[in-house]
Design a protein around this nucleic acid. Structure first.
Lengths: 151, 151
DNA sequence: TCCATGTTGTAGCAATGGCTACAATATATT
DNA sequence: AATATATTGTAGCCATTGCTACAACATGGA
């Protein structure tokens, strides 16, 4: 219990730094965000979101997409009927828009630093999930220094 | 539901954007980096890296750490004997230092934007894996702007 | 209508990464 | 030395997320 653990000549420091790694739940949330963001984009762009299109866009097989959609359905983020296209619920649409916003802010910020657009977009895709509110606000402020904050 | 549900003609756009999601291999690489970085830190700080300390730092059980260490061993990043502490191979040490460097640059950059230190460090932990060479260089340049101008 | 083709769904394999429970080993204390 | 405690290892569970192979469905064209 106490930190007087033992070790002959070795101290037992080990300051617990709470989860450097993404937890299970966090990772599931990232996946959900990627999916709903893409679904929203497909609907906005082409009028509908189909399993095959999602698979192409996400770079995975339709099987993986199918299974993930079932999970999102259970989580109340999408509605989907067999052999039909996928729709966002209100919650799904909200998450989709939030993700899209974060993605855009991060990408714009990177571009403002001189990072090429394509690279900025690609990096932002990964980074957006790890950017805290504070950091996102710092990015937004850097983009438009005259304004107060980003909602 | 939506009137545009079934595609009447052939709006099959779907520009393949190659993997928005992290691939399997990429994710394994991130885990490896987190582990070797932490192992390097523990060795530098306390003289050795033990399974239990790693578990505490990473916020997982010793079982998870143990299994991951075996994978890192197979990948040639660490050496480990039963009931003994863990050592980095040359490759592991190199990866550890690279990760630490990236982590530091990202954290310093965020701090330079006014993000509180603790938040900067936490965000950097997740972001470092998604920062391309170009973006990292943009961060570094932002940190020391006079470097390439004076010649 | 029937068939070809494309799309979607299902079955089942593998690897990762989390866990609990328990066994084995190492170390410290008595 | 014996024992108590801490550390490490093993067995086996579950969920996620990738895959291939195959089955079922939908739709357009002959």
């Amino acid at each position: 219990m106490s930190s007087t653990a033992s070790a002959p000549a070795k101290p037992r420091p080990a300051p617990p730094r709470v989860s450097l790694l993404r937890t299970r739940k966090e990772h599931a949330q990232e996946t959900a965000q990627d999916y709903v963001e893409m679904i929203g984009e497909l609907i906005a762009t082409t009028g509908e979101a189909r399993v095959t299109d999602l698979a192409r866009r996400l770079g995975v097989t339709h099987v993986t997409v199918n299974r993930t959609i079932q999970r999102l359905r259970r989580r109340g983020l999408v509605t989907a009927l067999p052999y039909r296209s996928i729709f966002l619920t209100d919650a799904g649409r909200q998450l989709s828009e939030e993700s899209r916003f974060r993605h855009q802010v991060v990408a714009d910020f990177l571009k403002s630093l001189g990072v090429p657009a394509a690279v900025a977009y690609a990096d932002a895709e990964g980074m957006e999930h790890h950017v805290s509110r504070e950091t996102l606000e710092a990015f937004a402020k850097h983009l438009r220094p005259g304004r107060d904050r980003a909602g």
